[in-house]
């Protein structure tokens, strides 16, 4: 096991795949000469040259569509969004082209493309730079959405995403790029998409969390353990298709669930998980499903407001105790 930063694990995944397959290239703002806005692609221009590591102007609609056309014509692009906050100027490309052309053409074309970049809040950046995009994109049939929580997962899942023949949106986090973790040094380490990870087993309550919230879930589980309760922590890893089976199996054991979701609450990932739980495990619920989300407002700037806006471990801990009737 090697200890890698999150960004290094992502870079390792891209590098290994690009060494394996000439049709893979990386395109996006500042990915080449600048070594990546968050240094994820550092050194890749030197290794692969300007044909395969391509800088773009600030032109998300253009280069996202370009990636989609290149995929349609047989290449396997990795399109970097400097952050997912900027993806909305290219929303139509992802919604109507990447996701739907295969269907509209009766399956004649496929789109082996990965869109990746940091997702969600990254501090006091104001409302435009703090959007959690999971539910926007997971809503769309034709797409897959992956959200790794650890360096190890990011490597295995990104390699799987690059190899997938359908469009995959890969959601990283600025806040996590520097995070270090053990990464498998298996020669070709690939984690399958669509499988949740039971990170910690327990029978007191099921905690579901992805991305940054995964770490909140672990903290909450530690605190509950101090109280003598073993929480089961599930990292969905893939948001679409979501591995509901694993979550439902856990609910049948714990009879209660708390979801930590950085998105704004309405019609969010947590809404869907809660819906599926009531549909598939109604008779197993001993308490209403609870969730901790970002507040139902745009992200504010002021530090105290921003802290208050984000999901808090204290709230998640209290929600767990509430559903456990403690």
């Amino acid at each position: 096991m090697a200890e890698l930063q999150f960004r290094e694990a992502i870079r390792a995944a891209m590098t290994e795949e690009m060494e394996r397959d000439e049709d893979i290239f990386l395109i996006g703002e500042e990915v080449a000469e600048y070594d990546g806005a968050y240094k994820v692609s550092e050194g890749m221009l030197d290794q692969f040259g300007p044909k395969r590591v391509v800088d773009t102007p600030i032109s998300e609609n253009g280069f996202t569509g370009l990636g989609i056309g290149a995929a349609m014509n047989g290449l396997r692009p990795i399109v970097e969004m400097m952050t997912w906050n900027f993806s909305f100027v290219a929303f139509d490309q992802i919604l109507n082209n990447a996701a739907k052309i295969r269907y509209m053409s009766g399956g004649q074309f496929s789109f082996p493309i990965v869109f990746r970049g940091p997702n969600g809040a990254a501090g006091q950046l104001g409302a435009t730079h703090n959007t959690s995009v999971e539910s926007f994109y997971a809503h769309i049939p034709g797409l897959k959405v992956v959200s790794p929580s650890t360096p190890n997962d990011s490597k295995g899942l990104l390699k799987a995403s690059i190899r997938d023949n359908d469009p995959v949106l890969f959601l990283e986090s600025e806040r996590m790029y520097g995070l270090k973790g053990e990464v498998s040094d298996e020669e070709d380490y690939v984690l399958p998409l669509g499988q949740a990870h039971v990170v910690r087993e327990g029978d007191a309550v099921t905690l579901v969390a992805n991305g940054k919230d995964y770490y909140i879930a672990l903290e909450v589980a530690d605190r509950l353990a101090e109280d003598g309760h073993q929480a089961e922590v599930i990292d969905p890893r893939t948001i679409r298709p979501l591995d509901f089976d694993t979550i439902i199996a856990s609910i049948k054991k714990t009879n209660r669930c708390v979801i930590i979701d950085e998105s704004n609450p309405f019609a969010s990932l947590s809404s869907e998980i809660a819906f599926q739980i009531q549909e598939r495990a109604f008779d197993y619920l001993d308490a209403p499903v609870r969730r901790i989300t970002a507040k139902d407002v745009p992200a504010p700037y002021a530090k105290n407001l921003m802290d208050y806006y984000m999901p808090q471990a204290d709230d998640a801990y209290q929600a767990c105790r509430d559903v456990m009737y403690l």
């Binding site: 109604f282 197993y284 619920l285």
Partner: peptide, 10 residues
């Protein structure tokens, strides 16, 4: 109406 969790009812 008796209030009960679905699990308790079952």
């Amino acid at each position: 109406r008796i209030k009960a969790s679905p699990l308790a009812r079952r």
